[in-house]
Computed example of a mutant assay.
Amino acid sequence: MKIGIDKIGFYTPHLYVDMNKLAVARHVEPEKFTIGIGQSQMAVPPLTQDSVTLAANAALEILDEEDRNQIDLVIFGTESGIDHSKSAAVYVHHLLGINPHARSIEMKQACYSTTAAMQLAKGHIALHPEKKALVLASDIARYGLNTGGEATQGAGAVAIVISANPSIMELESESAYFTNDIMDFWRPVYSDTAFVDGKFSNEQYIAFFNQVWGQYKEQTGATLEDFEAICFHLPYTKMGLKALRTVLDETSEAVQERLLNHYQISTTYNRNVGNIYTGSLYLSLLSFLEQAQNLQAGTKIGLYSYGSGAVGEFFAGVLQPNFEQHVQRDKHEKLLANRKELSIAEYEEVFQQTLPTDGSTVELDINQDPAIICLAGVTENKRQYVNKNN
């Protein structure tokens, strides 16, 4: 039985900042951002969007009534959770009107947790092939104004329906994974922003890739020639390229050229959204599926997932017949094209807006936010969500 991605959707806030202009404001050469880390634009979330609303909006565009009835597992991967106790999945489950007889949980392991969610969802569908699972990856990457990590911020969500006989991609059963306790990136519960050892984290990202790729080859006998493309977790778009280059000498120049060309295609959306942590790999996959030309059914795509702290995994998917009819290129291109550019002053103002932490009540103006699902305010420490379609 084939199990894999039946539907995939994406959402990012309606605001962004231009990385060239941010570089000028920070007194650095623009090429450091646009070429050095490979980012062109960075999504900026208004106060009316958080990890819950981003995920709900991403899923809203792909679910129909049949999905809502068949989904009995909702897994939310994030490191931008809004509550230490209640899972973000429960909020989204309600906002989308999903079948009440469902399990809803939140998972955490830096940027890796969505991959773990996908694997758990596969196991669930193997036992219950008549059901579907909704996997959500949603994050807001924040490091602070005028910090070293500012240029690698971002916001967005990817929603994925896992089912038997999937329309888009079968996820193969073989995968290679590796865990090691390191401190390359972390955020203690008392901190609103993360701590990162940038050089060490880059080194470990590459080391983990080589570890799991080597393990995957041993398990499967696969070579680079078997893959049309390899999609990477992208904290910034240059990161995956650094890892890919470490293994290119394993194959011919023709295959190297194909993998490099397809890598660039896979970074299209990420380059204009920024870092979305748990969703970054799957946004890269979506970018490749919607932007690459002449992809054929049976094509194999490699996937490298990495979450600091750290866990890495390499696995693969196979494209299904007529998969291109089940992605939404026009809708996602329109989503990005219709965003509003913020000046640096406006971006800084939005960035510094925060919700109350003392139990006081606040009402937010959701009319300024074009999203269907928004955060409308906080009352008695309870976030108030609105689905404008209801």
Rank of each mutant, 00 (worst) to 15 (best):
I206C: 04
T251D: 05
V161H: 08
Q49E: 10
D139F: 00
A194P: 05
Q153N: 10
K242N: 12
L134I: 03
Y385T: 13
D192M: 15
L136I: 00
K217C: 14
G359W: 01
E130W: 13
Q320D: 11
G377D: 09
L145F: 07
V24T: 06
S40H: 13
T237V: 04
G77K: 09
P166M: 01
N146P: 06
P321V: 08
R258H: 02
H326V: 10
N338Y: 09
F288H: 04
R271Y: 01
A155E: 06
V92R: 05
V255H: 02
C111M: 12
L289M: 06
K86E: 10
V311E: 11
L134D: 01
A297G: 09
T179F: 07
V24M: 03
N261V: 05
Y112I: 01
A194V: 14
A141R: 00
V386D: 08
A176S: 04
Y216T: 08
V311W: 04
E341T: 12
R26Y: 00
A176P: 02
A88W: 01
P235V: 13
L60W: 05
Y205M: 01
D192K: 15
Y277T: 04
S266D: 00
D197I: 15
L171D: 08
A133Y: 01
G317A: 15
P46D: 15
Q291A: 12
S360Q: 14
A345T: 15
G240H: 00
F185V: 12
Q215H: 09
I366K: 01
A89P: 06
S284G: 07
N322T: 13
L145Q: 09
S266L: 04
R245M: 09
F33T: 02
L234K: 05
I98K: 01
Q384P: 02
N322W: 12
Y385Q: 15
R258W: 01
G214K: 03
Y385N: 14
M42R: 05
S104H: 11
A55H: 08
A337D: 09
S167T: 10
I3K: 00
D83K: 06
F315T: 12
Y112A: 00
W186N: 11
E170T: 06
F10A: 00
D226H: 11
A23N: 02
G123K: 07
M19T: 11
P100N: 14
P46K: 13
V52P: 00
N210F: 02
S51F: 10
H94K: 13
P370E: 14
D365S: 07
S40D: 15
T147M: 07
V255N: 02
V74Y: 03
H262S: 06
T152R: 04
N261F: 03
A207I: 00
I301R: 07
N381G: 11
K86C: 09
H262K: 03
E218N: 07
I62N: 09
C111V: 05
N367E: 15
K2V: 15
S51G: 08
T223A: 15
V247M: 11
A164M: 02
